[in-house]
Design a protein around this nucleic acid. Structure first.
Lengths: 212, 212
DNA sequence: TGAGTATGTGAGTGATTACTCACTATATTA
DNA sequence: TAATATAGTGAGTAATCACTCACATACTCA
């Protein structure tokens, strides 16, 4: 729970009540969706007067944006920042599989600590142009270039097939996302051997499902 | 557009106004979501008095269910019915790749004719237990057994790796879904060579992205 | 034709919505 | 301490919500 707020950390200082408002809003919106969650409900769960919400957030939508934007930034930026891309070329990840493992592991842990936030992002992405814009920008400016560089690098080393980069991305990303959605949203209660599942996912991405 | 209504075909005869209501509801809900679409809006777009909606559908939710349920049934049942599963064992699809091609092609065409309905299904699945139940039942009763049989069959023929069936399903389904979502929802306007994309998707599913 | 039924209407209802504002309480700084 | 700013309150508001119901119209079949 504190993870979620960490992710949301804005530069400004927040009052205790403001934190309670964010926590309540995240809980309720991730469960019932933005349009089916009322500001009076949020106030009640946060133990706060309804007016207090609007003291900190101009509108209900402003509250949603303030919740979702840091998730987009964090998800796309943090891992694809210098540390990561440069490490690729410093041979930290000798094989594409090593990179893939680090990538999945990293995003897996992020997802694990932020299930409600990611649920909100996925669910509301469809309905709010502001969120779509922010997401597209983050992807095309941060994620896509980083992926592109890395793929080119490993293609050159002969570790990747000579497929269009877009195709490779379109095969790798859903495989990883599909695993995480099954893991955290569809069947969160199942007994998972996460380490084994991650390795198996990598195996299949690399070698497909085809037989000998 | 008429495709959508075809998918919805209930046994009972529908009046022209009822059809207009369904069409309007599908349009609006797929664009703005269930909770952000009001019955007055639906009535207005359908060219109908608001009371008429409730003459045919007991509640607003009833209207949603009547829209979504046939999609679940159609999507899961039609292709996995006898025709398909039996054809597998009659050697109609000699190789797993052939089956995969027929499968993707079939679901691709279904998706193409029903984009708004599938959008509604995906978006509202998260919030309505009734829909979740219907979906889970359809999957576990129709889709999963059919896939299981087919996978066992091709494993025995040595055309599939000896991975757990669940793993194979968890790798194949997101790849196909990922392609379709990119194709119809994320980038519907891009120039697509559908046939080539489908074949490439199959290639990657079978052989992974790994190099020689 | 006439009686009965199915379909369609739209003004009306109480509940709920996001948001406001005059006010109080607390913290900050002069 | 006095003055000012910030944080918190909750009753109030106009708009909108899903849904009802008395009534009008159109269709069916004896």
């Amino acid at each position: 729970m504190s993870d979620m707020i960490d992710t949301l950390r804005h530069d400004e200082k927040m009052t205790p009540k403001q934190i309670e408002i964010l926590k309540a809003a995240i809980e309720l919106i991730s469960e019932k969706g933005y349009y089916n969650t009322s500001t009076s409900e949020i106030a009640e769960r946060a133990g706060v007067a309804e007016g207090t919400i609007f003291r900190h957030y101009r509108t209900k939508k402003d509250l949603l944006i303030k919740i979702v934007k840091p998730v987009i930034t964090d998800f796309s930026a943090s891992f694809f920042a210098e540390q990561f891309v440069h490490q690729v070329f410093r041979e930290k990840y000798g094989h594409f599989e090593d990179l893939l493992y680090a990538f999945i592991k990293n995003r897996f842990e992020f997802a694990q600590s932020n299930v409600p936030l990611i649920k909100i992002l996925l669910q509301e992405l469809a309905f709010h142009p502001e969120i779509q814009t922010a997401y597209k920008r983050a992807f095309s400016e941060k994620v896509y270039p980083a992926l592109n560089q890395a793929i080119d690098f490993y293609k050159q080393k002969g570790e990747l097939r000579d497929l269009p980069n877009e195709t490779i991305i379109r095969m790798v990303v859903p495989s990883v996302l599909g695993f995480m959605m099954t893991r955290f949203i569809l069947k969160p209660d199942q007994n998972w051997d996460d380490e084994a599942e991650i390795k198996q996912t990598i195996t299949v991405i690399m070698g497909g499902v085809g037989g000998t």
